[in-house]
Design a protein around this nucleic acid. Structure first.
Lengths: 197, 197
DNA sequence: CGGCATTTTGTGCAAGCGGTCAAAAAGTCA
DNA sequence: TGACTTTTTGACCGCTTGCACAAAATGCCG
């Protein structure tokens, strides 16, 4: 049932994707509902009808972001040597050319942490879940890699995964302010090297 | 000359300190001028007269934050073994009790990076300078420690310092969303251990 | 074809925002 | 004391914000 009524005039998931890009590049506070209305080419009322208020909309975008990221992370780690894949994971957020002013910067989970988490419990949950999943996935891969002798057993896979979470979050954050590309790569290599058995 | 006119009724540097606390705990966007007026117990006009607009005020607070941090960093690294001091530097931002809702969370440089840098060149400068100084100071200490055989020479001091910047920024960011204290310490130890010669 | 359910559209609104300003107050100095 | 300079004070402004709502539009189903 419930298939009656006037149909949507816009593609909901595509609108969410565009909203994600806006929120990603400008942040939550700096993106006004007006901006969204213009960028998505729909009216205010439609937006509120489809996605609820601005906060819900933003959180939906963050969830989309994380789902996408998580899929990529799992795919990157599921086979082959782990360290090169992890190096790629680390280095990717630093790779943005940064010339276009509206290009997304940094990791959206990190942005959300900084801007929303202090006063928004739902945002905190979303972010905490993302962190937990990251550690779960990466620690799993590291455990395999330790068993195969690829990664040092000087620390537990969980501690190593936690360290990687810190590093990737820090790297993508620091990158927003501009970072010497070569220096960032050297730092990533230093970490990956330290994990090698 | 210039000693005439009605004298200030408030302590400017103390006001700046309180403003720092507010901005630190709530962020830029979530701190309204009204909040500042109430917390500092002065009127709107006085605030604008003394500090200029909200952005300038915030940036002044950030500079105060960094100056304080930098002094502490230099003091911590100037003598004795470097690695324990670095461990402390790493771990400190994770140590906040987190119970009080208005307690500052994370590193204010990191918060500024996430919230202001994308659209504020002056903020970007302040942040970039802080990053550069951090690396300069830490790399200097690491160079000494490498020479004394305390720290591995598997990577350059600069790369190691850059890695530490990423990690401390990431750790303090991630901490805002709540982090298992023990896990954070384990990760920090994993990194410090990896730097040991 | 005609009710029905739903979305679209665009206007409207109260609240809060950052920021300004003119008058009163409070010192200094001749 | 009385001009002069600066700060305080609190009212005020225009703007933008997130959000609500009523009327029109649109497609489905009996």
């Amino acid at each position: 049932m419930a298939r009656t009524g006037r149909p949507r005039a816009f593609d909901e998931s595509q609108a969410l994707e565009r909203a994600l890009m806006l929120f990603w590049s400008r942040g939550y506070g700096a993106t006004s509902v007006q901006d969204l209305v213009e960028a998505l080419s729909l009216e205010r009322g439609s937006l509120y009808g489809a996605f609820g208020d601005k906060r819900s909309f933003y959180l939906a975008a963050v969830r989309l972001y994380w789902d996408t990221y998580e899929r990529g992370l799992i795919a990157a780690l599921q086979e082959g040597p782990v360290l090169p894949a992890l190096r790629e994971v680390l280095v990717t957020p630093a790779g943005a050319p940064e010339d276009t002013p509206d290009a997304p910067h940094g990791c959206m989970i990190g942005n959300t942490t900084a801007e929303l988490v202090p006063q928004d419990d739902e945002a905190r949950e979303v972010v905490a879940r993302a962190h937990a999943r990251f550690i779960e996935i990466v620690a799993g891969a590291l455990r395999r890699a330790q068993a195969e002798g690829e990664v040092t057993t000087a620390a537990t896979p969980e501690a190593q995964a936690q360290l990687l979470l810190f590093t990737v979050q820090g790297l993508s954050l620091v990158s927003r302010a501009g970072v010497d590309q070569a220096a960032a790569l050297a730092a990533a290599d230093a970490l990956i090297g330290a994990l090698r058995a």
